[in-house]
Design a protein around this nucleic acid. Structure first.
Lengths: 211, 211
DNA sequence: TACCACCTTTTTGTATACAATTAGCTGGCC
DNA sequence: GGCCAGCTAATTGTATACAAAAAGGTGGTA
């Protein structure tokens, strides 16, 4: 793996798991030492994380970990609803048979995991969930949209949200995905968009209830 | 000015004015020589431009200038309509008296420039236009939204579009801005959003007619 | 003449050294 | 005792040197 990528992964994990608290300062040297690479690739990693919104630079003061106010979180869910809704629309219009089968496969697996809840299911569901959304965005076939959504969903709160899901939330999420596949397969843009909106709004509700 | 910023500005200008054609490869050394700085800040500039979508990296092959297909352009206008429409909504809800006065000032100036068309008016109008939109985004008070829109409007096609504006297009654009101010001042979210949608769709129409 | 291996050159990726700016502190002065 | 100047240490910003990888050309061979 390239050094820059290693530094990026290391720091990103540290931010997400809370090792670096929001608002705390991150120096290049720290990361350099932690990742075992020189400062050059570290600077690259910092820039990427800044572009993704996990860090922000104050002038001449280096990087600080972004902290998300309640209002920011609300805005982000609103934006996600809008953009993912649009993605669902495009997917309903453009998805190939391959896309649909892949999506159905992922949604089915997720349903099973949500039902069985065998050891480690949270991580597996989180993974299936993100793969589902990414596959849907691929089917939407708008690279710009994918970029925009990428910068939204990489925000820490998405990760946090999943841990907060109760059992019924998990199965509802899985049902949403199944319904999305049906809507996309039938080519019904309005339906797909509506389900996706409900999906994101449900996630927002879970988040707001806990924070 | 910092060297990285200088490299960024230099290369960005070269891409926008067409010195670097879409699809052409950009080497670090070239930019380094052109800007008169070392490769280190150049790499920083390349990353920023990649994040903004003006460049894209192929694995181990360096940076190539992005070229925008017709479909990409259409998607971008669609996304801008959605996001700027949302921004207009938020602005209608949240704008302060200061915001409104600043917006009205900018829109008024733009109207005059569109009417008089004195030497260099294109550049001045382009500037006023971008300041108007940025001020509106500021009034919308959603930093994440601002980031997303930033990555859309920095795309080359926005610049190109403005040069294509005919006289009547320019005055219509100015009228849209005036109407937006009225809608925002009255706090009517639907109105503001609708005007903004019309505004972006009109821009798309101009772009599509020429390309 | 076509094709393949190898070498050269170019270009990216990384490390390190140095410059410049800044924050925080220490000591002296009022 | 409080406050300001100046210094020190820490941190970012930049340049350069070197390593690694890859593209493209060259020569030889079938």
């Amino acid at each position: 793996m390239k050094a820059a990528e290693h530094a990026y992964n290391t720091l990103r994990a540290s931010i997400i798991d809370g090792t670096y608290a929001p608002g705390s300062r991150v120096t290049e040297q720290e990361v350099s030492a932690a990742a075992g690479v020189s400062r050059t690739p570290v600077r690259e990693a910092l820039q990427r994380l800044e572009a993704e919104g996990l860090l922000s630079f104050a002038a001449h003061q280096g990087a600080v970990v972004s902290n998300w106010s309640h209002r920011d979180a609300d805005d982000i869910f609103e934006l996600r609803a809008m953009l993912e809704g649009y993605a669902a629309r495009l997917a309903a219009k453009r998805a190939s048979q391959n896309d649909i089968e892949a999506l159905r496969q992922l949604a089915t697996e997720q349903s099973l995991e949500a039902k069985n809840r065998s050891k480690g299911y949270i991580e597996r569901i989180a993974d299936l969930n993100s793969r589902f959304h990414q596959r849907l965005q691929l089917a939407a076939a708008s690279s710009k949209l994918q970029t925009l959504l990428g910068s939204l969903s990489s925000a820490p709160l998405v990760f946090q949200t999943f841990r907060d899901y109760a059992t019924e939330d998990l199965s509802r999420s899985a049902r949403h995905h199944m319904e999305l596949v049906d809507a996309i397969e039938s080519g019904d843009e309005d339906w797909a968009c509506a389900v996706m909106n409900a999906h994101v709004m449900a996630a927002r509700q879970v988040f707001n209830a806990r924070h």
